[in-house]
Amino acid sequence: MSSNAFPDPVTTSSRRWFWPLQGLGWLGYFILHFTAAMGDGKPLHYVTASLSVTACGFVITSLLRLGYRRLWGLPVPRMAAAAVGLLVLATLVQMKLYVAIAFSYCDDCEIRSVFGYLWYFASTLYILLSWSALYFGIKIALQLQQQKEAALRARNAAHAAQIKMLRYQLNPHFLFNTLNAISTLVLDDKPDTAYRMVASLSSFLRHSLDSDPEQQVTLMQEVDALNLYLGIEQVRFGDRLQMLVDVEPAARDALVPSLILQPLIENAIKYAISKREEGGRIELIARIDGDMLDLHLRDDGPGGVEADLAANGHSRVGLANTRERLRVLYGERQHLGISNRESGGADVHVRLPFSTAQDERP
């Protein structure tokens, strides 16, 4: 496949900007050259000399650009040496044309010493060197901007992949537990209960797969997703599992990461509900504290959270993944802590920046 099939963004952008800038630059040169000639007492028809000199400069720098483009991408020492050679050659040609055109309007004009040649060469070199510096400066600036944008896209892609990895690492364990429970129900000859659990699992998985882990949802949408998950667990535990949701009105539309609370609920069920014959209660409490959203997930289980988590590898992984996901999304402006309650049970505290969908609109 030809390398031209995928044009260089730097080359494309520089082409778009080159001709307008080239035209404006040499138009400015023409105005300065002609007004300086009028101030020096030249006749009005000298405008043709100014136009001719400007046209020569326009053509020579356009050709110089073609030479510079061929050098682009070479090692810096080779590119610099070749660029200097092209610049000197272009200066000599432009100086020769300038002298020929200017002297054609003056009968007694001539270069009488080597210093005269040096003056014409230096003045022409100054103009072409300034043009070359501007050309390379713009081209390098465009390349740096392209590299910055490419690095940003790569960082965003890695960020998105990390979030998805952290989210989806939690699903296999939950799926294994649920399928194991369904298998037990079938072996216990409880087909109706097993069917309800399969239906609930299907609804939850459909929601989980349809939701984007990079996107945020309102807190009430997250509660609806939790209800799908709890519908599965309710089949297993029946009246042993009680759930209380207490969300103040101001927090209902707060944005949270999709399915961020599911692994925390899973841990609460594991330690507060399944270990006790009488079951237990889980509370989700949401409040606004200044510019932060405070979430508390509490249970009335036996407590001993630190010891239980140290003994269970998956729980450590689930909480660690949730912490990492929050860190990736919010940086230092987040908190996830877990502690034992004085009245018994555990309290998981999640603190996030408070925002709504209206705040996210540009």
Rank of each mutant, 00 (worst) to 15 (best):
M1C: 14
S3P: 06
F6P: 04
F6E: 09
P7I: 09
D8R: 00
S13A: 11
W17P: 02
F18D: 01
W26T: 11
Y29F: 15
I31H: 09
H33M: 12
T35H: 08
M38Q: 13
S52F: 09
A55H: 09
A55F: 15
Y68K: 09
L74S: 15
P75C: 03
L87S: 00
K96F: 14
A100K: 06
R112P: 00
S113V: 04
G116S: 10
A133I: 08
L134K: 02
Q147N: 13
Q147Y: 11
K148N: 10
N156C: 05
A157N: 11
M165W: 10
L175M: 12
N177Y: 04
I182F: 02
S183L: 08
T184I: 15
T193D: 12
L205T: 11
S208G: 05
L209M: 07
L209Y: 11
Q216Y: 05
T218V: 01
Q221L: 04
V223K: 04
Y229C: 13
G231E: 10
D239P: 01
E248K: 03
P249K: 07
P249M: 08
L255M: 09
P257H: 01
L259Q: 07
L261P: 01
P263C: 06
I265W: 03
S274W: 06
K275V: 10
K275S: 14
R281T: 07
E283Q: 13
L284N: 04
I288N: 04
D289S: 15
L293H: 08
H296F: 10
D299F: 00
D299W: 00
D300T: 04
N312V: 02
G313H: 14
T322S: 12
R323C: 04
E332G: 11
L336W: 03
L336I: 07
S339E: 14
N340M: 05
G344K: 08
A346I: 11
D347Y: 01
V348S: 13
H349I: 13
D359Q: 12
P362L: 09
